[in-house]
């Protein structure tokens, strides 16, 4: 096949592109030119910090893409009523599972140890919710159809209010719970029994 016409087409395309970049010299004040370098440096510094933290220190927002059938949450194994609240596995990892639904959290209150990595798994049983534990970085949206997972640890013991921070309906103001953080040495893992009355929700 003869590639010449193609070559010609390309070279003329490149030429016309080059033509576009010609023209009178662009008027830039020397001081403005310096400012361009300054702002590029500023943006570069901030982006650099964010990238290094994300790649080398693992600092990322909650982004665990996992789906779940919100309409059948109570029938799912993981978010069935008896499995909600704080659970410790054989190797000592602590997972907290909480369901958000209008207008409350289930369970409404959990107690966790300070200075320990905790895995929170949130699911909505109806509409969009969000949670924030003020003064901490625990903040995530809870979308129906998705499990919102995040890992965090709370350095300071105390009683933290757990607030719904996305409009979810007329009772939204009333949607809150609490997380009690106790010093690590005073915390004991909740004992889970098979009986229903003993589950941690109120």
């Amino acid at each position: 096949m003869n590639t010449d016409p193609l070559k010609k087409k390309w070279s003329s395309a490149i030429q016309s592109l080059a033509e576009q970049f010609k023209g009178d010299p662009v008027h830039i004040d020397p001081l403005e030119k310096k400012w361009v370098y300054v702002i590029l440096g500023m943006a570069g510094l901030l982006v650099g910090i964010i990238i290094i933290d994300a790649l080398f220190h693992g600092i990322n927002p909650p982004s665990h893409v996992e789906t779940i059938d919100s309409a059948r949450l109570h029938l799912s194994e993981e978010f069935a009523e008896d499995n909600l609240g704080v659970q410790v596995d054989e190797s000592g990892n602590i997972t907290v599972r909480i369901v958000a639904g209008r207008y409350g959290f289930y369970p409404k209150q959990v107690t966790v140890p300070s200075g320990t990595t905790l895995t929170f798994r949130w699911a909505s049983m109806d509409v969009l919710h969000g949670i924030h534990l003020p003064m901490t970085n625990m903040n995530t949206m809870i979308l129906p159809g998705y499990v919102a997972e995040l890992k965090t640890d709370f350095p300071k013991p105390g009683n933290y209010p757990l607030l719904c921070n996305e409009y979810c309906g007329m009772g939204h103001d009333h949607m809150w719970g609490s997380i009690t953080v106790v010093a690590k040495e005073h915390w004991t893992a909740p004992v889970k029994t098979a009986s229903k009355g003993d589950s941690s929700h109120e």
């Binding site: 901030l46 982006v47 990322n60 927002p61 995530t140 949206m141 997972e149």
Partner: peptide, 20 residues
């Protein structure tokens, strides 16, 4: 959507850089 569960962190980081 930084705090959203339906998008993965790489995409959020890419959009974050563009934001700057």
């Amino acid at each position: 959507l930084y705090m959203d569960p339906e998008q993965a962190k790489g995409w959020k980081l890419l959009h974050g850089i563009g934001t700057f």
